[in-house]
């Protein structure tokens, strides 16, 4: 009613604002400051020195890790989106209301299991003498090396992201106007073409956002690359944990972390812009 904020409104709006400023935004801002600090005799000192940036950016190890992480996360986003889509399409378009609700409930369950425990379990399945290879052995196949390589890492990413990506895709497909699909069929557009030319464009924003989430989660994850990918050569998140564990080189870890944030923001911005771009000029 009046423009001056009342005591009442501040009571409810301020605590969250203060909490997130103090414990979310300030720590991230502090990371920026930290990246210019120097380390002498294993002691961090406030400073304004670009040495950490120069050191990290001049190392080929960093750039190798950077592009490997980028590639793995992109591959994860694309492969998981492609794997998820037929399932999401079937859930949204082929199942009845009741089955659909059950599916959504079932897909939420993994969020309440420890990711770490799932990864440990996967280790047992994927190792050289593990359950999967033993099973394949009965069929006269293998053994295949599925652990400590990119296959392992991507399998772990998929464990993390697949339920979320399917859920997000289902939600966006549920919003596709069913009349459009019937109109397309009515104009002799075949099943597959209707999916490609009507359904996917209609649900584009949601599908892109789902892929973006897979990218963000994979890009920042360090459990899968470490325990399923073997950790060597490292991804950026493993690099951060390695740098922090070995001595007091936190400012360098901050440089890696800030580079990751910048990359994530760029990708997220581009993806959202692409997702909501309207047809026509």
């Amino acid at each position: 009613m009046n423009t001056r904020p009342s005591l009442f409104s501040l009571t409810f709006s301020l605590p969250l604002l203060i909490w997130q400023l103090a414990f979310f935004l300030f720590p991230l801002a502090f990371l920026v400051a930290l990246s210019f600090w120097t380390v002498r005799n294993f002691q961090m000192q406030p400073d304004f020195d670009t040495v950490n940036w120069v050191k990290i950016y001049s190392r080929s190890v960093f750039w190798d890790a950077y592009f490997r992480t980028l590639l793995l996360a992109s591959a994860s986003a694309v492969l998981i989106s492609l794997t998820a889509f037929p399932a999401s399409y079937a859930i949204s378009f082929k199942l009845g209301e009741n089955a659909k609700r059950w599916m959504i409930f079932v897909l939420i369950i993994p969020f309440f299991t420890s990711y770490l425990v799932r990864v440990y379990s996967l280790q047992v399945f994927l190792s050289d003498a593990g359950i999967l290879n033993a099973f394949l052995g009965y069929l006269g196949l293998g053994p295949y090396s599925m652990l400590n390589n990119s296959f392992g890492t991507l399998t772990g990413y998929a464990t993390l992201c697949l339920p979320l990506v399917i859920l997000l895709q289902v939600f966006s497909l549920n919003f596709v106007n069913r009349d459009l699909v019937e109109a397309a069929h009515n104009m002799r557009c075949g099943r597959l073409r209707t999916v490609l030319e009507v359904i996917i464009p209609s649900a584009k924003a949601g599908l892109v956002i789902a892929g973006l989430f897979a990218f963000i989660l994979s890009f920042g994850d360090f459990v899968s690359p470490l325990y399923l990918g073997g950790g060597n050569p490292p991804t950026l998140s493993i690099m951060i944990t390695d740098i922090t564990k070995s001595g007091q080189q936190w400012p360098r870890a901050a440089v890696v972390a800030l580079t990751m944030i910048a990359t994530l923001l760029t990708v997220a911005f581009a993806a959202i812009k692409f997702a909501y771009r309207e047809a026509g000029k």
Partner: peptide, 16 residues
């Protein structure tokens, strides 16, 4: 906050 990788959040918070 949930979109920032936990490794980075952990690092930032511990440092801060």
């Amino acid at each position: 906050p949930p979109t920032i990788p936990v490794v980075i959040m952990g690092l930032a918070m511990l440092a801060f």
